[in-house]
Design a protein around this nucleic acid. Structure first.
Lengths: 353, 353
DNA sequence: CCAAGAATGGCAATCGGTTGTCATTAAGTT
DNA sequence: AACTTAATGACAACCGATTGCCATTCTTGG
């Protein structure tokens, strides 16, 4: 370090040197200025009742004068609480996560927590490594649509507070967006329009919401006596919409329900290129109602979910685990309702010769 | 705490208790297992050459056996480096930032840093408070399109490493997306299509890129002898596109250049509602080429910028300040080229009676 | 007027590392 | 073989807080 040669400096000159170095004030500086011990300052700030109000007043004056801000690292080290929460998302650039992130961010900030945002790049390995790392760094973790196995998740849950979004594992608190129900609404919607041969354009095989959705869909299809093919899996991205669109056309189905809106939008683009009209020739349903779903061409019929609310609820659940006893009794699961938003990408089934 | 009653426990039983509590191993545990002092372990890990290779091998064996991971807080406290960087964005849900965030995230992770993402909600106050807080928590800050005054920024820059994106302040390293140049391209594009009365739909008055853009535009308009009105300011959101669209129609201009794509897309929607055809009646140019600009209706002619690259470059510049001497000599400014992407929202000027 | 108890503040250990300093040992020099 | 020098590892202080425990002071009751 480039510390000045510390000769027999008086405390005054050392204080001056410190001021010159712009080093932020510590609890000891406050203690010295207000003529008490550091421990008293700590108590005055964290346990106001523990300290005489006159003393506290002096301390608070010193705090404002020195612009003292407690060092988060030191606080974390001694208290064991980092006041930060990690939020893991599979792909930051997927608009679906935008509102989740904003929801968590808002709620966390309101509670005085910092958000550590990590993009796991749809990789299980990154996911598990990050969790391992966050064990030390964060007070808790929010996992959005984790790819990990149930066992791995349960193991991680034993080590630290953890809440999942869109993934249900017994014993782990979770927030679920009830897309299967809305997907059934979509099915009814399509059937009512005369479609009898429908395809599901599946997402990643390891995605639990993909599995849940397909189960709901195939069950409902049987009950209603319509044919629903399962195509895919496709990557949940715009670019894989082309392959999905071609598979859909090839399947002969008159309507497609896509794993998510990114894929659906990609399909719309591909179908337009191929000259297949939507919804005249083929109807398309998406899922998530992401940014863009309302202004693509045609506007997408899709499943709308209260995404930012999911983020907020997840944070609330997590914080109630981190600080037990405070506030309401912790719910261990929350299912948020969704609904079908009908726009221009679905229409009557074409007449077959 | 719920510590077990510590009777005259041997170190062995205490170790067992520790294992039961699943407390992560510390450097002292490693030291004890490998029969050296904690300081030696520290050196073996951070300064490999400082320790005999046989000793180091023993230590590394102990590390893997205990699954030792250094505690980030303790490391931060003693070393003064938190290995984390704060990234401040005005609005997480603005797609423009997605790629910046992804760019910073990627580059930071590659360098072993953690990203602290903060949404400042377009608020100057939140911005300054966050910076103040991050002073202690992060090793550096990346500010995207900050709203702060030059003075406030310079002051903050004296306290900690800081890089701005899309904001130029002498003395502060910055990454600029050269949108003014591309905006002039847009102007030429419109002029070549026969437009002679054009409007600029301005963004927030405090936005520096808004100011830069308008200056470039008005200068270029004078040179070329066309009329460019300035309308606004409008919020850089989809919903303010309606007002912008109406203002544009009222102004009588045949083409509008919007502050950003969000606004432009909102304008497209509003114009469609009003029955104004784009581009037959009015041409629209956006800026940023965000997600959605290619599939809105009609697809948006807009200014494309290497946004994720901006994030990566900003991180590189910041890290070279945080760790001076390592790697290349730090650039203090980087201007990234942009270009006009012509799509369907611009066309020949309508013939005026 | 004295003892008991509450209120208050200080001391020192602790969290888990880093790093300067020093003692010991081994190797190299002449 | 005696001496210098480099290599190596331990000790202890320190980073900036928190917190258990103890000493002092002030109240208050008997």
């Amino acid at each position: 370090m480039s510390a000045p040669p510390s000769t027999n400096a008086t405390s005054e000159t050392r204080a001056a040197a410190k001021k010159a170095a712009k080093k932020p004030a510590t609890i000891h500086d406050v203690a010295a200025l207000s003529g008490v011990a550091a421990s008293t300052v700590s108590r005055a700030l964290s346990t106001p009742g523990r300290v005489n109000f006159r003393t506290r007043a002096r301390i608070e004056a010193a705090v404002t004068e020195l612009k003292y801000v407690p060092n988060a690292q030191a606080k974390a080290l001694s208290s064991g609480q980092t006041k930060s929460v990690a939020v893991l998302v599979a792909d930051i650039t997927n608009p679906f996560y935008f509102d989740i992130i904003r929801g968590t961010q808002l709620q966390l900030k309101a509670a005085g927590y910092t958000q550590l945002l990590v993009d796991t790049e749809e990789s299980e390995e990154v996911e598990v490594n990050t969790i391992e790392q966050m064990l030390q760094t964060a007070d808790g973790v929010i996992l959005t649509a984790p790819r990990l196995s149930d066992e791995a998740l349960l193991l991680a849950a034993t080590k630290m507070p953890l809440v999942t979004i869109n993934r249900e594992v017994p014993g782990i608190p979770s927030v679920l967006l009830d897309t299967p129900t809305a997907t059934n609404q979509a099915l009814d919607h399509l059937i009512s329009l005369g479609h009898s041969h429908i395809a599901y354009l599946g997402g990643p095989g390891s995605s639990s919401s993909n599995i849940r959705r397909w189960e709901a869909l195939s069950t409902a299809a049987q009950e209603r006596g319509v044919q629903v093919d399962r195509l895919g899996p496709f990557a949940p991205r715009t670019y894989s919409g082309a392959a999905a669109a071609d598979a859909l056309v090839y399947s002969g189905a008159t309507a497609g329900i896509a794993f998510n809106d990114l894929m659906a939008i990609g399909m719309l683009q591909r179908l337009a290129t191929r000259g297949v009209r939507v919804p005249e020739d083929i109807s398309i349903v998406g899922c998530d109602d992401i940014f863009g779903a309302d202004f693509c061409s045609p506007p997408l019929t899709t499943v709308t979910a209260p995404v930012d609310q999911a983020g907020r609820v997840a944070v609330t659940m997590l914080l109630s685990r981190i600080n037990p006893g405070i506030g309401t009794l912790p719910r261990s699961q929350s299912v948020l309702p969704t609904h079908l938003t009908i726009r221009g990408s679905t229409g009557p089934a074409p007449l077959r010769p």
